[in-house]
C-alpha cells in the first residue's frame, strides 16, 4: 500500500513537472486536495465578501453611468465567486459546507475587505489597487496545475480586465478634478496602499505553505515576487495621476529594476486576519444574514421542484 502510494505520488509529481494539468477524477495526494480546497474556497469567499465594501456605494454612485458600471463590476464578483465555488466542488466539498466554514470563521477570506469604504474615491482605489493586485495573483493562478481552478481563473482574468480600468478611470478623473476630490483620492490611497501589499500574503520567510504549493505548481511565484511585480506596475500609474503612495522609503533600484518599498506592518496584517479589522463583524454578519434570510427561499424552490417532478411522474 505504502509502496503503491509512493509510486502514485511520484507519477503525480512527474505529471506536474511535465506541465500537465490535474483533473478532478485523477489521483492526487490528499494534501494537494486539501490545500486546493483551502485556497479555492478562500478565494471564493473573498469574491463574495469583496462585494460588500463596494456594493454599499452602488446606491450612492455619482452618475447613472457610474451606477451601471459599478453594479456590473460587483455583479461580476458574485459570478467569480460562483466559478470558484464550482471549481472547489470538483474536489469533493459542497458549497453549503464552504459557506458554513466561512460563517463559523474556520475559513478565511482576504483581509483587505475588512477595511471600510469611506468616500467615492475608495471605489476608484479598490478597482485600481485591490483589483490590480488580484489580477497579478490570478494571472499566475490561471496557469496553475489544477485544471478547474486554472480555467476558473482564466475566465475571471478575461472578465476582470475592465475592473482595474474602471477604478483607474475614476481615480484619474477625480485626481484632475476639484480640491475636494483630490483630497478624497489621496486619503483613499493612503488608507488602501499598505493593505493592498498585504494581499499577497506573508513574506516568503514566513510562508510555510509556499514551498509545497510551488512544487505542485499550485502557485508559480512566491508572495514576495508577486508583491514586487505589483509595486513595479503601480508606482508609474500613481505618478501619472500625481498621487503620492504613502511610503517614504519607496525608491527605484537601477540594478534590479525594482521599486524598493518600506517595511510592511505585519502585526496589523495578523490582527486583521484574526478578526480585529474595522469591519470584520459587519462583513460576516452581512453574509450570515443573507444566508438566513435566503433559507426559506431555497427551501421553497426545492419543494416546488419536487412537486413538479412528482406531477410529471404521476
Amino acid at each position: 500500500m505504502a509502496v503503491d502510494e509512493k509510486a502514485k505520488l511520484a507519477a503525480f509529481e512527474e505529471r506536474i513537472a511535465n506541465g500537465e494539468k490535474i483533473e478532478p477524477k485523477d489521483w492526487m495526494p490528499e494534501r494537494y486536495r486539501k490545500q486546493l480546497i483551502r485556497m479555492i474556497s478562500q478565494h471564493a469567499h473573498s469574491e463574495l465578501v469583496g462585494m460588500l465594501p463596494e456594493g454599499n456605494w452602488i446606491t450612492r454612485a455619482p452618475s447613472l453611468r457610474r451606477k451601471l458600471t459599478l453594479l456590473a463590476k460587483v455583479q461580476d464578483e458574485a459570478g467569480h465567486g460562483l466559478y470558484l465555488y464550482c471549481a472547489a466542488e470538483t474536489l469533493g466539498i459542497d458549497r453549503d459546507e464552504m459557506t458554513e466554514q466561512l460563517l463559523s470563521g474556520k475559513a478565511k477570506y482576504s483581509s483587505i475587505f475588512n477595511y471600510p469604504t469611506l468616500t467615492w474615491a475608495d471605489i476608484g482605489t479598490i478597482g485600481w489597487l485591490v483589483d490590480g493586485a488580484a489580477i497579478v495573483n490570478q494571472t499566475m493562478l490561471a496557469k496553475c496545475s489544477y485544471g478547474p481552478y486554472a480555467r476558473a481563473n482564466l475566465r475571471i482574468c478575461k472578465e476582470e480586465n475592465f475592473h482595474k480600468r474602471q477604478g483607474y478611470e475614476i481615480i484619474s478623473i477625480m485626481a484632475n478634478g476639484t480640491d475636494a476630490q483630490r483630497r478624497m483620492v489621496q486619503d483613499a490611497v493612503d488608507r488602501w496602499w499598505w493593505p493592498s501589499l498585504m494581499m499577497f500574503g506573508p513574506p516568503d520567510t514566513n510562508s510555510p505553505n509556499t514551498e509545497e504549493l510551488m512544487r505542485w505548481k499550485v502557485k508559480l511565484k512566491s508572495n514576495d515576487d508577486l508583491r514586487q511585480r505589483f509595486v513595479n506596475l503601480t508606482v508609474p500609474q500613481a505618478r501619472a495621476v500625481n498621487v503620492t503612495l504613502p511610503d517614504p522609503d519607496l525608491k527605484y533600484n537601477e540594478e534590479t529594476r525594482n521599486w524598493e518599498f518600506g517595511e510592511i506592518d505585519w502585526d496589523e496584517f495578523y490582527a486583521v486576519i484574526k478578526g480585529h479589522g474595522p469591519m470584520n463583524r459587519e462583513r460576516l454578519e452581512a453574509r450570515r444574514s443573507a444566508e438566513e434570510r435566503g433559507q426559506w427561499v431555497r427551501e421553497a424552490a426545492r419543494a416546488y421542484a419536487a412537486k413538479k417532478q412528482a406531477k410529471e411522474v404521476a
Binding site: L48, M51, L52, G55, I58, T59, K67, L71, A72, V74, Q75, A78, G79, G81, L82, Y85, R95, A286, S289, A290, R293, G294, Q295, V297, R298
Partner: peptide, 20 residues
C-alpha cells in the same frame, strides 16, 4: 441594486443585479 451582495443564493444575486 440594494440586493447586490445580499441575495438568497449566489445565482439569484446575479439575476437580480442583471435585472437592476
Amino acid at each position: 441594486s440594494e440586493w447586490c451582495g445580499h441575495g438568497p443564493m449566489l445565482e439569484e444575486d446575479i439575476a437580480l443585479s442583471n435585472i437592476a
